[in-house]
Design a protein around this nucleic acid. Sequence first.
DNA 1: CGCATTTTTGATCAAGTTCAATATCAGTGG
DNA 2: CCACTGATATTGAACTTGATCAAAAATGCG
Lengths: 246, 246
Amino acid sequence: MPHHFIRKLENFVRLSADEKASLERLERHKRSYAAGEDIAVEGEPPDRVNLVLSGWACRHRALSDGRRQIVGLLLPGDLCDARVFVLKQMDHSISALTAATIARVDKDEFVATTDASARLTRALWWNTLVEESTAREWLVNMGQRTALERMAHLFCEIFLRMRAVGLVQERTCDLLMTQAEISEILGLSAVHTNRTLQVLRAEGLLSLTRGRLEVLDLEGLIATAEFDANYLHLDREGAAHDANAV
Amino acid sequence: MPHHFIRKLENFVRLSADEKASLERLERHKRSYAAGEDIAVEGEPPDRVNLVLSGWACRHRALSDGRRQIVGLLLPGDLCDARVFVLKQMDHSISALTAATIARVDKDEFVATTDASARLTRALWWNTLVEESTAREWLVNMGQRTALERMAHLFCEIFLRMRAVGLVQERTCDLLMTQAEISEILGLSAVHTNRTLQVLRAEGLLSLTRGRLEVLDLEGLIATAEFDANYLHLDREGAAHDANAV
DNA sequence: CGCATTTTTGATCAAGTTCAATATCAGTGG
DNA sequence: CCACTGATATTGAACTTGATCAAAAATGCG
């Protein structure tokens, strides 16, 4: 079982063996979800800290007339923030996009673990800030980029985030969403999503078949997206607090 | 000088006199900004915690070709989060939208103040979560709503947020942005923003002249926006931790 | 193989953009 | 107080992107 969460936090700081061990203990209570199953539902009180061990999930909100927008992607190693408990109810839903296993961590246990180390606390802050930053980048994406740029941007992000947790082999990674789901991320119709995807393929930038994304020309993809990875903060900014440098 | 920040946090919990006094002390170091002036710039290391005392500011990101998206509005009482210091550099810029005064709080002083009270710590978490939630709602807005719904939604949000800090008189509040700036929030062209605004006016929902927004028909505005105020979490969810109930 | 889901294609349509011109407004100096 | 100036708001017309509707092809799965 790969510890993607640890791998992810280590994009910010290097953790001590003790810190890693305490994080691993959080993963005891696992649960499997089928694709499409709800993990947390809007309106309900938040109950546990959810940590994605494998598979993909998403945050989403629905309008009363059925329109739905995916407002965040949760890949392996991603976490639904612990502080959410100060709110009485969830303001969005979280559902599995693919078959997924989720560690469901007791809130107090989670807080105890992260509070035990100032470095872990910082790493968690970093994690939250990156998620906020990503939401803002998605806003830029929706507001300013064309369908083609927007989709290229999404695939860049997915590819780099998957790589950051060690889930890229060669130039490929899993991508098991349907085009309808991609369209709910991008705010496009399913038909236009399909046509836009065909352009990216025709330009030799990527291939996407049978749930596998292959990035054929990362430079080209980055260029058509006007992608700037800065917002993902993957450059080990907390190196000054490196456990192995002390 | 009204303490909008305190007023805002009191939408979550009631604070003790001591807690309020300690927050008021944070507002000592003020600075005025002219409309358009930068408060923090993308790429630079974050230096202070900025707290909006009066006027409006915004978070925004630019693409290399000049397209710009406003990704957040900062109204009086709003705060640029303290935890931002774990990042080496700002991932977006903050600029004054109108003439504004900002309290620039030293990071350590800010942390000391909020850490001194568990209730304040919670109130700050709440504040951050509301901002995250708002960013997600903006994503829904951009991805799923038409121009008319989108603009109605923005005006609903502004009106309720201003009311939550006591800045609504009768049915009116300040709104000193230009239509060009509104269009950078909504991801619309300036021309279409103008035309959409005219529809809202023609339907008798609001009037907007000389920097003043008057909501003529809040019910109607809410209905055309499919607005659900839930995401603003203004219902004093932290009442269980009320300072005056202990 | 057979069924349901997903992807793909075609044709028409509508929302929003772009470009360019004009009107209005706020402030400034005379 | 008025004329001047630059910024903001408004209008019109042509155009483009992406949406919608409907059907067909491909794929996955029991």
